[in-house]
Amino acid sequence: MDSMTPLAAELLHYREDSADTRYFKIRLIAPNKMSAPQPGQFCMLSVPGHGEAAFTFATAPDKQGVFHILVRAIGELTYALFALKPGQRIGIRGPFGKAWPLAEIVDQQLLIIAGGCGLAPLNGLIDHLLKTHRKPQLTLVYGARTSAHQVLNSQRQRWNKQIPIFDVLEDGPDGGTPLSIMPNVIKSMVDKPEKILLCGPEAMMQISALYFLAQGFPATSIWAAIECRMHCAIGLCGHCYLEQQYACTDGPIYRWDQLQPLLRRSI
């Protein structure tokens, strides 16, 4: 049976991240009751009295059940979460959804394009790849509205010691989107990308994918993580429908060619 009852967890700590995001450190009270999430999977976080919503695991729970999530303050639940003090109880269910396709991207020349909070579902993946990739075949392009809205600054600084990172800001000199710097990014890569991972605003993912598809890049080598409203994460509540699928169980990470028939609109 699929329970909708969360496991108890404790808010251990948080640090301010960007202008409107916080990086929360959380501990599961009974770590053995949750299976280990893969990079890209998500949890449902409850703030008692304020509901439940989906957040990606920025890091997976360790043996003590300690993990991190990145949260932007944007609605009732997240405002309530930001108002909590360390030590207070929250609820966690998960892990849910499809993970990034590790087996298909391992040791490949990877280009990751992220925008805004879309870097959070990639945090665990990038850390994982930096530990397991045989060569530093990873390039990150990260777009944000302004420098104040760039998330995961300490992580990006740390990663940048091992991989090239191209930052672009909407209000910056380069014209604003990852696409506007893409020719330079590609030029800088010794080997052309073999696989592309996208996570961020839908328009950003769309124009990025179309840019590479127009150059003959196969749709079967592009993955995108989409964001949806969810109330259950187990394929029942109906909110995250994409045609006959539910993003919570069939996604939220989709291969580009498999995502397209599910979209009535272009994302």
């Binding site: 009295g49 509901g51 109330h231 029942l236 109906g238 909110h239």
Partner: peptide, 10 residues
């Protein structure tokens, strides 16, 4: 039809 929402009540 089976869609549902959730809500918290104090």
């Amino acid at each position: 039809c089976s869609c549902f929402a959730t809500r918290d009540l104090d």
